[in-house]
């Protein structure tokens, strides 16, 4: 079956603004949008540019907007879209660089702000750490995050406030502070107790809707709020003689 692919194109050296280009292409029945785009590039227009790598929904390179829905191009089957007209656009909330390439720097910068690593200064224990399966189970949901930025792009708060840390970074923080190996003190992450942190979230759960890995980042944000509440109480308590 023939499909019309309308792909947003932008050449920063020539174009004043992005425009759609149409390609007629007949994908194989089981093709994903990414495979179709690669074939279009190989057969029709080698100048078409987009990010890709693993093609199995684990590297997080290829997030785009397909017929209005934010997802990974490698995860979206063409046939499942139920229409022969397919519109492909770059991620919103991040600046377009060329074709479907967006500037990911703001996303990575937000991540760095939460100090996204285990805080443990001790030596490596000789026979490893002792950790319960149940404790790992609690964070497993958040470990599935591949940092593809689907959530960041779909988030209405990130769209209007560039300082907002966004769902992925906050969910990552929750995963870390819940880890039994992490010894960070509440005062070291207290800065997320703010409007550009956990209180920025509108709780419209767009992030949960679009996450291709079922991370449900908003669960992490809400859990952080509860944790902050308890930590603040403890903090106040501690300061009083």
């Amino acid at each position: 079956m023939k499909y019309i692919f309308k792909i947003l194109r932008y050449d920063p050296e020539k174009d004043e603004k992005p425009h759609f280009q149409e390609f007629i292409h007949e994908p194989c029945p089981a093709d994903t949008v990414m495979e179709a785009m690669k074939d279009i590039r190989d057969q029709q227009d080698p100048t078409l540019s987009f990010r890709y790598s693993c093609r199995e929904a684990i590297c997080g390179s290829c997030a785009v907007v397909i017929n209005g829905h934010t997802t990974l191009a490698c995860l979206q089957s063409v046939a499942a879209l139920g229409t022969t007209e397919i519109v492909i656009e770059p991620l919103p909330n991040l600046e377009i660089q060329k074709d479907l390439y967006v500037d990911m720097d703001p996303f990575w910068e937000a991540l760095e702000k939460i100090e996204p690593y285990i805080h443990n200064e001790g030596e490596v224990p000789e026979n490893g750490h002792e950790i319960d399966e149940a404790e790992m189970d609690k964070i497993y949901q958040f470990i599935s995050c591949i940092l593809c930025a689907c959530c960041y792009s779909a988030c209405p708060v990130a769209s209007r406030d560039g300082r907002y840390l966004g769902p992925a970074a906050l969910a990552k923080l929750y995963r870390l502070v819940q880890d039994p190996r992490d010894q960070r003190d509440y005062t070291s992450w207290r800065q997320v107790n703010a409007e550009d942190g956990v209180w920025g979230c509108d709780t419209v759960f767009k992030c949960n809707d679009v996450c291709p890995k079922e991370v449900r980042p908003a669960d992490g944000i809400l859990a952080l709020r509860r944790k902050i509440f308890v930590s603040e109480l403890k903090h106040i308590f501690k300061r009083k003689p």
């Binding site: 690593y117 285990i118 443990n120 490596v124 224990p125 000789e126 026979n127 490893g128 750490h129 950790i131 319960d132 399966e133 790992m136 964070i139 497993y140 470990i143 870390l176 880890d179 190996r181 992490d182």
Partner: peptide, 15 residues
């Protein structure tokens, strides 16, 4: 492996 675990790798666990 123990070093990776110490860095934060969430290995699956046994009882």
């Amino acid at each position: 492996i123990y070093e990776l675990e110490h860095m934060g790798v969430p290995f699956s666990r046994f009882p």
